[in-house]
Design a protein around this nucleic acid. Sequence first.
DNA 1: AAACTATATTATAATTATTCTAAACTGTTG
DNA 2: CAACAGTTTAGAATAATTATAATATAGTTT
Lengths: 142, 142
Amino acid sequence: MIKNSEFIEKLRISGLRPTKQRLKICEVLFNREKTFHFTINDLAKIISDRLSEKISLATIYNTVHAFKNKGYLKEISINSDKSYFDTNTTDHHHFFDEDNSELIDCDKDNIDPINIKKNITGKKINSIEVLIKVASDNQTQN
Amino acid sequence: MIKNSEFIEKLRISGLRPTKQRLKICEVLFNREKTFHFTINDLAKIISDRLSEKISLATIYNTVHAFKNKGYLKEISINSDKSYFDTNTTDHHHFFDEDNSELIDCDKDNIDPINIKKNITGKKINSIEVLIKVASDNQTQN
DNA sequence: AAACTATATTATAATTATTCTAAACTGTTG
DNA sequence: CAACAGTTTAGAATAATTATAATATAGTTT
Ligand SMILES: [Mn+2]
Ligand SMILES: [Mn+2]
Ligand SMILES: [Zn+2]
Ligand SMILES: [Zn+2]
């Protein structure tokens, strides 16, 4: 159980005041054991299911983006119509289950370190991400 | 210079008749030496710049998706608001230049083959893609 | 605690990418 | 030429996201 003061600290560093709505968002995002992969819509739904009152989408978008900009959340590249976010902000790779559009962390030791032998001249590498798309095996069960 | 008959063949296999508009799209897409990475908007702009008359967005979307479904184009995963397509349909990785939102192919021998040691149970791997985000090096020129 | 000020929340409008629809158009066949 | 099947197109519909601006709240000062 993470304490409220941690949420307040994250909010403060992100330049946001600790309001009731933002603390509720923090609780959903950061008060968990495991990595949480979500879309804005997922998050909004969880909040509205768990809460009596709803938090407006604008507030959710603003807060999530502020956290992302400060590195408390990561945005994940998937070819889809919506953005995915990730509470695991370390460098890591993903499986994407195309059957249910679910993101799953890939253990660090499940892939050997990626070594880029030659980078684009004059640029620095900001991130290296592997995305492994998987789907059900049962195409034609013979 | 690729011949018209190749375009017609690609269209036929994609289940599309060779109309004037579709052949023009083919010419922009496939009559080139190098890989072409583009958004629908890029493509529409190139066509309208090069053509006297415009091709409607609906036709461009339909044709590009038909080609994608038959494997003549690939859709690339980037975290952005729009979809990127790629005329290089082989398995390959990308640099993404965040300065100008440009995709660049990564030479096959620039990265060692990715070996996934343990896959999700019951799923088969459809693709493994590496995305290397790069940006200008000159943050603070000291 | 009341007043004051800066900031936050929210409903709603605007924007953008994409998909859908239905009417006009084209090319082919009898 | 008339009928038909498939195509193009403009524009409407949808969905994610961002912007706006009026109202509400939090933090500070008296
Ligand atoms: Mn798509
Ligand atoms: Mn975004
Ligand atoms: Zn993750
Ligand atoms: Zn490519």
